[in-house]
């Protein structure tokens, strides 16, 4: 129980963000109205995905340095968990866009970029399954992962900033600037982000531990 304080912290933070996020004060914004509250739930999915992909790339680099199989396993489980958050992010984004921007998939730089990034990480998983030999698989997929991560950042965070995008933070306006978020929202928003990142990491560790158990059993068999 002593080691799991951060798991409880993550749960409490997200639970608090649900309560305050639905009941707390928000600015009355044009077009968005009450849907601005989605910021507390849709955006943290992407933060959690980003954190998990970052963990994955760190462990991919570590694998290339150390050659330890466990590092490779953490890298793949982080991507596995990150993709789940990514899919939730895409779905919630489509629902939100449908009602505020008029269509589920507007031709938006950030939306398209995130779709391509998703396909890139799906390709990572397909690539892993395609390679039979274990060491080769770990090495090639680690290198692929190191290339995929910066491309994901460019597609999702840099390209939309350079063109006009419906998302905030594009076309010259600041991300989470005063226009779309006031200071009453900020603490709740950051709390939700940290909470969801902690929960994402927790699920990732669970998957990793199951993977270790499977490996152990395969060795015994």
């Amino acid at each position: 129980m002593k080691k799991s304080w951060w798991k409880i912290l993550g749960l409490v933070m997200v639970a608090a963000s649900i309560v305050v996020g639905l009941l707390g004060p928000v600015p009355a914004l044009f077009l968005l109205h009450e849907t601005i509250r989605n910021v507390y739930f849709h955006v943290p999915m992407w933060s959690a995905m980003f954190a998990l992909y970052f963990i994955s790339v760190v462990y991919s680099i570590r694998y290339l340095n150390s050659g330890r199989v466990n590092d490779d396993l953490i890298a793949v489980e982080a991507v596995n968990t990150g993709i789940v958050f990514c899919i939730i992010g895409l779905l919630t984004g489509m629902q939100w866009a449908n009602i505020t921007w008029g269509m589920a998939w507007p031709n938006d730089a950030k939306t398209n970029g995130s779709a391509i990034a998703t396909l890139m990480y799906l390709a990572y998983l397909v690539l892993r399954n395609a390679l039979e030999e274990e060491q080769k698989r770990a090495k090639i997929s680690a290198i692929y992962n190191i290339f995929a991560f910066p491309i994901m950042i460019v597609l999702m965070y840099i390209m939309p900033k350079m063109t006009d995008s419906l998302h905030p933070g594009s076309g010259g306006n600041g991300t989470f600037g005063d226009l779309d978020m006031n200071n009453q929202m900020r603490p709740v928003f950051y709390m939700a982000i940290i909470g969801w990142i902690l929960i994402g990491v927790w699920i990732c560790t669970l998957r990793y531990r199951v993977r270790l158990l499977e490996n152990k059993r395969n060795l015994i068999d």
Binding site: K7, A15, I18, L22, L23, I199, I203, L206, L213
Partner: peptide
Amino acid sequence: IYVVVLVLLTIFIVLGVFLFMLDRRIKKLE
């Protein structure tokens, strides 16, 4: 609105408890 908050909170807490149970089961297996 309190009903909505309560429903969402219930779903989330149950999921959290479920995750903890999963955690404990994996620990036992380890």
